[in-house]
Design a protein around this nucleic acid. Structure first.
Lengths: 325, 325
DNA sequence: ACCCTGGCAGAAATCGATTTCACCGTCAAG
DNA sequence: CTTGACGGTGAAATCGATTTCTGCCAGGGT
């Protein structure tokens, strides 16, 4: 790990000159050449740590997501990465596992490592962004917007999507439409359930009956468990709206095991099924613009990093309904 | 962003004492209390950057993977994270997108940010780990082991797995067994194809006929394209061994579209199908211990970080054959 | 002949935390 | 009563790159 001083000594110049060579300041051609030669000979790599300490900022942005095994978040990550890389930033992914403790730890790291900015899909409802905001660290919320904090956010219209998906089941004539959604403290989960409720009650929430509503964990096994539970009811549902793709895989597995796959049971899913579409079964899918969420969030963040100081914005992307199978 | 100096001033002590309080050295109870109070009042967070610069090491390990959208790598990541977190380390994920340029960039960052260590699933065959090794930065290769460098590695027996999977197709009486594998410059891809060749030629490689062999990209669309190509042959295959799960999703989609799903066509897959198992179709699956690969790699890395200096080891995990559907 | 401008380069300060070194008391042993 | 040991503490050096600040020198204008 050679330092700038050793390079300077080898090239017969001062450290300042070496620094200038690497940062494109005015240096005479001969010295620049000498420095470059010395640097190459020593395999010199400037210390990012020292640079970051001095400059009080780095070219790394943190992307904090709750579940790295969820294809939605990985697609989102790809979007973020593409934009960030094009702008010369590196992205580090932090997986919180829906755990507030881990989330806090990563946010703390982002702060104390003076990262350029943070894009966060919050675990649960109320993440503590106060530390970041107090230090004026640029933050963009994506998919889920934390309560009570005023930051840029990029989301989709979960309620409308849930409503539209469920509506297709209503129109197909199903009578007992269940809903499997995510944790009750996650905004996107409750909003999608609200959309389901809108559709099954025909817009008369007074008639809401949450008999068929299950809060699971947005994971495959959780979806399977909830589906089993629903099917074990005295009067099992004849259709189900599942609020994300991982849970739908679990739910479909259970339906498959019990021989009740569509079209016997109506199924509508919020989120893409990247691996599923092989089976020729009729399903309604609410397409999530995951990658675009990431792209948009990254662009917003870069604007903030660039010094944009306008009031916080919320961007709501559309999702699209398709039927497969 | 208050510094240790401000805390020291507020508490009426020297910066050294503040540091000692946070690092558990001997400090009188009164001063310790005063420091803690001042730190809380100022919302002081020690700068990781400064700390890292001074200590020449951090508690972050980098996990470099080629495709974050591949469930295999995300499961692996979970394994790494679990072990690392338990040991007090944070994990940052770096997605190289099978791109040597990006990979190099991340390795460079890991080095110049003096991270504690690196776990890498190399993009392509010959990643340049020389920089890391020259600086004695602990490195563990996982899934794929780079050529010509002597580092700890954790892999599975790809050839045996490919052979066993293909063998089940042979035993089912299929005559024309194709193979869809990954890029030809990726070790795991060629090894799995070797296993396929072993099985179809009955161990007489002289009779190898790569007519039915396709190199794709380990992604869904690539698998679909390869499958279409194979089916368009004058004499299409009656079975296929697919070398990873993402490609198998694409391949199955094509088979589904053409009404040739199993059991009409024989299918064997290397890698788990986390989302697929809903459909009651008979498939052979080579189970990959993805999470355990991660766990094992992380443990090895932690040993190295702890100063273990023994010669490099290679650990080969078993994979398990199952039939679903 | 003198001054000014501008390009180039080095000395030294700086970023914030850690740690060595030195120093001061205090208390126990000789 | 002296000496040694030891806990507590601060001053200052250190990690490595960046950046002012300053000075040197050459060339052009008056």
């Amino acid at each position: 790990m050679p330092t700038i001083y050793e390079v300077a000594a080898a090239a017969g110049v001062s450290p300042a000159t070496v620094s200038r060579v690497f940062n494109g300041a005015n240096v005479s051609p001969e010295k620049a050449e000498a420095v470059r030669k010395a640097a190459k000979a020593l395999a010199f790599t400037p210390s990012r740590t020292a640079r970051t300490l001095r400059l009080q900022s780095s070219e790394v942005i943190a992307l904090v997501i709750p579940d790295i095994e969820n294809p939605f978040f990985t697609a989102l990550a790809r979007g973020v990465e593409d934009v960030a890389h094009a702008a010369g930033y590196s992205v580090v992914l932090c997986n919180t596992d829906e755990d507030h403790e881990k989330e806090l730890r990563y946010l703390d790291i982002a702060l104390s490592a003076t990262m350029a900015g943070v894009i966060i899909a919050a675990a649960g409802g109320d993440s503590d962004l106060s530390g970041l905001l107090a230090r004026r660290c640029p933050v963009v919320a994506v998919d889920r917007s934390p309560h009570g904090v005023d930051v840029d956010a990029v989301t989709v219209d979960n309620r409308a999507g849930g409503r539209a998906a469920t509506q297709t089941l209503v129109e197909q004539g199903f009578q007992r439409i269940a809903c499997i959604t995510g944790p009750s403290d996650v905004e996107t989960a409750t909003q999608r359930a609200d959309g389901w409720r809108d559709a099954v009650t025909g817009g008369r929430p007074a008639e809401a009956d949450d008999h068929y509503l299950r809060f699971a964990d947005f994971r495959g096994d959780g979806g399977a468990a909830a589906m089993s539970e629903l099917l074990a009811l005295p009067e099992p549902p004849d259709a189900v709206f599942v609020a994300n793709s991982l849970m739908s895989a679990g739910a479909l597995r259970v339906l498959s095991e019990q021989g009740r796959l569509p079209p016997a049971t109506g199924v509508a899913v919020f989120g893409d099924l990247p691996f599923l579409p092989l089976a020729p079964i009729p399903i309604t899918v609410v397409h999530m613009p995951a990658r675009h969420l990431g792209i948009t969030a990254a662009k917003l963040l870069l604007e903030r990093i660039g010094g944009d100081d306008q009031p916080a914005r919320t961007i709501v992307l559309r999702n699209q309904l398709t039927r497969v199978g």
